[in-house]
Simulated scan of single mutants.
Amino acid sequence: MSLESVFKNFCSFGAGKDGKAQMDNAKFAKLFRDLKLLDKKFTATDVDIIFSKTEVKPKAERKINFEQFRKAVMLAAEIKYPGDADCVKKLEGKIISGAGPGSSSPSAKVSAASGSVVDRLTDTSKYTGSHKERFDASGKGKGIEGRADPAAGSGNGYVSGYKAGGSYGKVNKHCGEKGKSRSTTTHWNMSLESVFKSFCSFGAGKDGKAQMDNAKFAKLFRDLKLLDKKLTATDVDIIFSKTEVKPKAERKINFEQFRKAIKLAAEKKYPGDADCVKKLEGKIISGEGPGSSSPSARVRTASGGVVDRLTDTTKYTGSHKERFDGTGKGKGLEGRDSSAKGRGMVAGSVADQAAYVSGYKAEGSYGKK
């Protein structure tokens, strides 16, 4: 393996059979990210600045060849190893000994799936203040050591005011089954009220009161996957604002008002079912609580409210709505079935099952060579 072969590997990554030995800014940044060469001294921002320097390439050009790549590596080495006479040799050695593009690490997969927004938000080299102190130079979390707060005098790594401070790793023997005990950190939801309180306090800090605003009420239904075609996110917002639940001027609800809201939600979700309230309360109690660790929840959290709203199939209307089932899963060909106007086809006929967009020139080609 040589420096040039690494350069060519990253140039051709994702470029197909016609990939040329030229590297754009995205692949240049990918090289340093995938080979874990970024740290506090040498950040992703430094990589972007180096690539755009006129010492590397003319300003109008968007890609670099191997010789220009070597100039860029030289500039990167001077930033990463300041004052070291062998800085270029060191950095080239690390690049040559790297794993190449397309790393199979979990962080790389999350980055690829979630896009550049997630990539930037999870780049620990850009963190500042107390967040910066919670990660080492390689981006690995320091754990308890990173949470210790000498100023507060706690030194135990727990957030100030956390009522269960010191409980991490300890066993709650009352949660066991047939002699098997479980950690207190994994035991959730013994009652409806405890679920209510856990969502009320989520992100509220030490002053969190047992009152729930609209955002957390909506979060409860979203995190516990209780939304479907019958009970949508819009329904949840409307229920929260009803005068049957709380006075119009109030912005938060207590537990009793929460139960009233649950009753209205249950009637909407299970129309005509005498046990609707019991059913919905059961689902809430058996849920995972706020801050779900599922991959989809992590992506939603990292990508922000815009992505969350745009991918919420319960809010889709018209023909888009018909392409997804109640769980949000796409119906595939069945969801595209329609009697396209002007095609001379009878709705529901064999010809109409093609589900091609009207005017598509290659209609009938699917599956054919």
Rank of each mutant, 00 (worst) to 15 (best):
E4A: 12
K8M: 07
S12G: 09
G14T: 02
K20M: 10
K20W: 00
M23P: 12
K27R: 14
F32Q: 02
L37A: 03
K40F: 14
K40G: 08
R62H: 08
F69E: 09
A72F: 04
A76M: 03
K80I: 00
P82G: 05
P82D: 05
G83P: 09
D86L: 11
K90W: 04
I96C: 14
I96E: 15
G102K: 01
P106V: 07
A108G: 04
S111C: 10
S116H: 02
D119F: 01
R120K: 12
D123V: 00
K126C: 08
S130M: 11
E145Q: 14
A148F: 00
P150Q: 01
G155M: 09
G166I: 05
S191N: 12
L192S: 13
E193N: 15
S194R: 09
S194H: 12
V195P: 00
F196K: 12
S198W: 08
F202R: 11
F202A: 15
G205N: 15
M212Q: 06
M212I: 06
A218F: 01
A218Q: 12
D223K: 01
L231S: 00
L231M: 01
T232G: 06
F240C: 09
T243E: 13
E250D: 15
F255V: 06
A261I: 05
K268W: 00
C276I: 00
V277S: 06
V277G: 03
K283I: 02
K283F: 05
S286C: 07
E288Q: 11
G289L: 00
G289N: 05
S293N: 14
T311S: 15
D312I: 10
G318C: 05
S319P: 11
F324M: 04
D325G: 05
G328A: 10
G328R: 08
G330P: 09
G332K: 04
S339P: 07
A347L: 12
Q353F: 02
Q353L: 13
Y356Q: 02
K361T: 13
A362E: 14
G367M: 02
